[in-house]
Write a protein that binds this DNA or RNA. Sequence first.
DNA 1: TGCAGGCTTCAAGTGTCCTTCAGGTCTTGT
DNA 2: ACAAGACCTGAAGGACACTTGAAGCCTGCA
Lengths: 158, 158
Amino acid sequence: MAEDTIPSKDHWLSIGEIAHRSGVAASALRFYEDQGLINSRRTAGNQRQYLRSTLRRIAFVQAAQRVGLALAEIKAALDSLPDDRTPTRADWSRLSKSWRSRLDERISELERLRDDLDGCIGCGCLSLQRCNLYNKADRLAERGPGARILNVGIPGEL
Amino acid sequence: MAEDTIPSKDHWLSIGEIAHRSGVAASALRFYEDQGLINSRRTAGNQRQYLRSTLRRIAFVQAAQRVGLALAEIKAALDSLPDDRTPTRADWSRLSKSWRSRLDERISELERLRDDLDGCIGCGCLSLQRCNLYNKADRLAERGPGARILNVGIPGEL
DNA sequence: TGCAGGCTTCAAGTGTCCTTCAGGTCTTGT
DNA sequence: ACAAGACCTGAAGGACACTTGAAGCCTGCA
């Protein structure tokens, strides 16, 4: 396997190369393109060619998904990048900063849930009148919408 | 509104009452029944009637969903409850114990993500070669499968 | 008794994130 | 030049957790 040699010269990458390097299926990449998350130019024969920087964009998408954002939200974030120049560190940094609070929220919600679990279900009460676990008020936006098949991980693992 | 009076005598609840008290739509309750998560008896006129304890079952389902379990997994957990008697505190406790590690895992994954964010995307590197954020190895099972519409919360909020 | 409002079933639709397929084209290496 | 393999498009399918709709039955209260 000689595909690990990284050419130092700027050149365009085929969808297969991008798929390989990013670990994202080619079909998903086409889907992302449909959704406006990434873009490509075409060869004379209509085949996609990507900039190397697309890999970073995809990395961003992947990370954002792990944070729990929907593709539409990720697109909105990416759309706020300047399209007249290659995004700088500062650009990416700005985008990812907004994740911080999301992540913090999600983390603390899960911690709250864990504590409630210990204190409430753990004791078997699960009282509908008092139980925090069943407090509708804070059960919003646990996970983003959309079906993830990936998450099955190793099939039959649970 | 006088529906908050809780009768002390055991009696059966209609789907509307269960929906109201649990906050789960009647259509969802029927769906849960189809999926074997809850059950009901019927009136002479074929209308569903639920035991009061069904509310606890539903609370369990809701909490489990917040932990990130799929309905099929929740069903599996519920199926391990004794069906010859009303589940005890110990029964519920046993079930919810397995969530602990799940929750801990999810929490630490998110914390890891947050740290990577600070250390990596935060600085703008997002290096595909080294970046933890883009380490495929640990990007499993971020969120459970399935579409949640609820999570949209207040539409147009984000 | 009458009737509004709640309940029934079954089928189809929704939203998200893709994958798979069919049928055809392009590129690359020998 | 030719075959193998990569790539193209558009449509359909699939997983998940439901919702919506149509057409009709049941129940509680005045």
